[in-house]
Design a protein around this nucleic acid. Sequence first.
DNA 1: GTCAAAAAACCGTCCAGGTAGTATAGTGAA
DNA 2: TTCACTATACTACCTGGACGGTTTTTTGAC
Lengths: 178, 178
Amino acid sequence: MGRVTRKVEILHAASKIVSEKGIFNLTLEATAAEAGVSKGGLLYHFPSKEALVQGMVEHLAENYREKIATSAHESQLEKGKWITSYVDVTFNNPYKKTDMNSGLLAAKAVNEELLNPIRDLYMEWQMAIENDGIDPVKATIIRLATDGIWLNELFDLNQLTDEKKGAIYKKLISWASE
Amino acid sequence: MGRVTRKVEILHAASKIVSEKGIFNLTLEATAAEAGVSKGGLLYHFPSKEALVQGMVEHLAENYREKIATSAHESQLEKGKWITSYVDVTFNNPYKKTDMNSGLLAAKAVNEELLNPIRDLYMEWQMAIENDGIDPVKATIIRLATDGIWLNELFDLNQLTDEKKGAIYKKLISWASE
DNA sequence: GTCAAAAAACCGTCCAGGTAGTATAGTGAA
DNA sequence: TTCACTATACTACCTGGACGGTTTTTTGAC
């Protein structure tokens, strides 16, 4: 039945190339080589470059959605469980943040519309966060600050020391249940 | 002396292409056409594609630095003038935010190291913000939240309504002088 | 349980189109 | 004369995608 993992392996290979060598080096041949598949084999799974990038985005969106949802449902909190989960998952990224960054950059480069699954995710989260039992403005600021960390990592701008990052994490988490 | 504006016009043309058509359409010919210059003319100013992108980044870094510095020096505040200026300028972007986004994306795609001028900027600001008379952790969170807005705009993720954005702006500004 | 046929999962090559960068000859203004 | 270009031509290279094959797996009739 053709192991499902093959497709995922290819997606990982694509992410790796984007994060290590940049979007201009994300070619079908390079991806195939990185994944240990022939170019024809890759095209069997993803019939075009755009389909490949679409696959990247959809895959990471599913992963991310699941991580946050699991965390929120396991939470014991009465208030702020969604925003807390968002901060938690994004800070401690148990999922691969490289995949997220690569997927975003690749989609932005190849075709804006491929970002739609991510946009849907954000809409869901924003709704959850605004009905989470805490002040929606504060909750949104907490989310934005978390996204700010992410922007800084994406472009390797101002990497905070672990100490500072820890202090920020603590403060955000404490705000999230006030 | 060959009007300085010519170079800047070319940089603007390049930004426009990146933001409207994506990084893959940023070709030398397209940039020249958009700027109303021949390809040879473009290469006279920027001898390679990398030099062009470098120009984009340096130009926007200078602009941005100046905007923040001016705002901070004009500020009447005793505490939090830098973080307030950062929030102010970024929210109300009197400079072209498209240029910033295009520059970042182009540099990230072409050559990581071209982002260094932006990294320097962030280091300066982080230092200023941490010695701004208010709690450094809080100040950093305010900066990160502002960056979060920016991430969302960059990928057109969750565009907040003007109303919500206004509320967030007000709260951040008030925190910045507490 | 067998086995042929069909479907799935690949492989390797070729080509048209596009791109960065080079080269060269020329122009008008200061 | 130099500067700041224009206009055109050319090269060397790369890449997406098409195409035609081949092998492996699954299916279903007997």
